[in-house]
Design a protein around this nucleic acid. Structure first.
Lengths: 340, 340
DNA sequence: ATGAAAGCGCTAACAG
DNA sequence: CTGTTAGCGCTTTCAT
């Protein structure tokens, strides 16, 4: 019956079936104004009947518009990165843009490889979690003609646009809070910072603030290679108490680590915050639910995504967005029961 | 200088600069065997120098191979779905396949819209979280020529391939465990099941098993519209204790809900499992860390992704994968301290 | 309101 | 080992 046996239905097939040109079918599908209402209806009906599926690849090639925005995150398993991606995705979908997501797994070489692959798809913009690029990565990002947005931090040498918060400054504020409560003997639990630039910046913020207060900035516990989570936090408590027996307060590089520390305290009957004050970072849902609730810093993960989407929409609309945008979304200190 | 001012570098530009045909450049980039090593090196060097970026869109169109696999999940913010996607992504990357991810937000109409958009990108396979499709969605999935894989459940009317576990059967086993411990007065806390077919199936598994044991199957608490998480679990405890004062054990539709219930118990000084036994579903990391640790069902979220990737690779390699595959990955009961 | 011709950047198919 | 020709399915451009 069909002369293109086994082949997918194209616009030309729909056009022939309806008795119009492919151009008219194209116009019907794009909702062009200048097209007869009846013709349009007939085309859409026939297309449905034939099982026609529009080929976005061909359209992309011809229009030089892929409709993609590339995004890289260190780990999609992290609830906060996931929330950023979710809001980014929501915001972009209003402009008909789809996300091309890549997980770097906290590995700069993997990130380089993934960004290379993403760029071959001709995305209209690329959104990155800031920090720790390889030389080749930086070179690719500087050479590309599309908008580049770094998020989740404030890079010293921004590539183009930036949306985020200062990791060290935010952490400094947490130290100020704990010192304000009267604590002097404060420790920091984080991962191997080489694999997690943001975590490393938080640790730097911790040591800088401790020094500023004239306190010992050396109470650091390394919970393992990034990403460190609940399990690593729980395991780290032992080392914390052994290495720094007089510790009064501890800050986790994230709420997940803080929750691990908290759980292990509970298990051992250590009163929080009576015997040990615990604070986290990131304002994850778990910190609002656990007992006691966690003092933390809200980095507004969702808002970062929302604002990145708006920024991209604006840049793609008017080409006026030629000069780099710098959007700082300050983290908010949230004081809860775990610090006292 | 350049005659294509403002335009991106193409293969033809590289070819001209090196003094070969575009075909040779194409071969160099694809790592074809039959090409002079020196020529290949010269091409790659020149390409780098000119800032050439391979256009995967054009290659896709010509080869009729997009290199995409489409995936839909109800929520990427859920750690278990994220883990499935992560492993799926890892497995597929070995075959040079990229994931095109869409979040349905537990909304069948949104799912329909997203699947429509995904199919226009000509993915080579599509992976769905099973259940609750609109009529149009089912029709699209039945009409498509690409492999369709439903995961995270065992559908009554599979479209093609299936990889997952039985939600009702798994939940039944949890009931058996609690009854085996001597509990008779058991409740279930979940979300509005209309929005979450998998949650609804778990509830059905609960009621069926309770009836099988000759016990009251009516102790249900609805924690709100799906997705229900930690916060909804915490809020639901009050209703649970008010509506069913004699309740001995409670099952959360997920570990997140169970953790919410557990936290609220801790807050009120209710002993778990002494006064109330709590069980969850899904084996989330939190259940291994919290105090007491949660009894749960391991659904092997990561393995679902890994196996989906292998299945896709196999189907795309030999076309022999014409008959539907049915892979059941039984959930494992994990007994921990929260049930006693 | 509709159509004809050209071409987006790459590669299949064939030739040498 | 390398080149030539044609064309993937759509849209731009220009014409009517």
């Amino acid at each position: 019956m069909n002369e293109r046996q086994g082949k997918a239905v194209r616009m030309a097939d729909v056009a022939k079936a309806v008795g119009v040109s492919t151009m008219t079918v194209s116009r019907a599908f794009r909702g062009d104004a200048g097209i007869n209402v009846a013709t349009r209806a007939a085309i859409l009906t026939k297309a449905e009947e034939l099982g026609y599926v529009f080929d976005a690849t061909a359209a992309s090639l011809r229009q030089n518009r892929s409709g993609f925005v590339a995004v890289t995150v260190p780990s999609i398993n992290n609830a906060n990165f996931a929330e950023t991606v979710r809001q980014l995705s929501r915001g972009l979908s209003r402009d008909g843009l789809q996300i091309l997501l890549a997980n770097t797994e906290y590995d700069p070489d993997e990130e380089e490889r993934l960004i290379g692959e993403l760029l071959r798809r001709k995305p209209e913009a690329i959104v990155l979690t800031v920090g720790g690029y390889t030389q080749k990565t930086r070179q690719m990002l500087q050479a590309t003609r599309i908008p580049v947005i770094e998020m989740w931090g404030l890079p010293a040498k921004p590539i183009q646009h930036v949306i985020g918060f200062s990791n060290p400054d935010s952490m400094s504020r947490m130290v100020d809070h704990l010192v304000g409560l009267g604590h002097r003997d404060i420790a920091f639990v984080g991962g191997d910072s080489a694999r997690d630039p943001r975590g490393g910046e938080r640790r730097q913020g911790f040591t800088a603030a401790m020094r500023r207060h004239g306190l010992d900035d050396g109470k650091l516990v390394t919970a393992g290679p990034a990403p460190v989570g609940m399990a690593e936090g729980a395991e780290a408590l032992d080392r914390l108490l052994t290495d720094y027996p007089g510790v009064q307060a501890v800050i986790g590089v994230s709420d997940l680590v803080a929750f691990g520390l908290l759980s292990e305290c509970q298990r051992r009957g250590i009163d929080v915050p009576g015997r040990l004050t615990i604070a986290g970072f990131g304002n994850y849902e778990i910190g609002r639910i656990c007992v006691p609730r966690l003092t933390t810093l809200d980095v507004h993960a969702g808002r970062i995504g929302t604002m990145a989407a708006s920024l991209i929409a604006r840049i793609l609309r008017d080409d006026a967005g030629n000069q780099p945008t710098w959007i700082e979304i300050p983290a908010d200190l949230i004081v809860r029961e775990s610090s006292g």
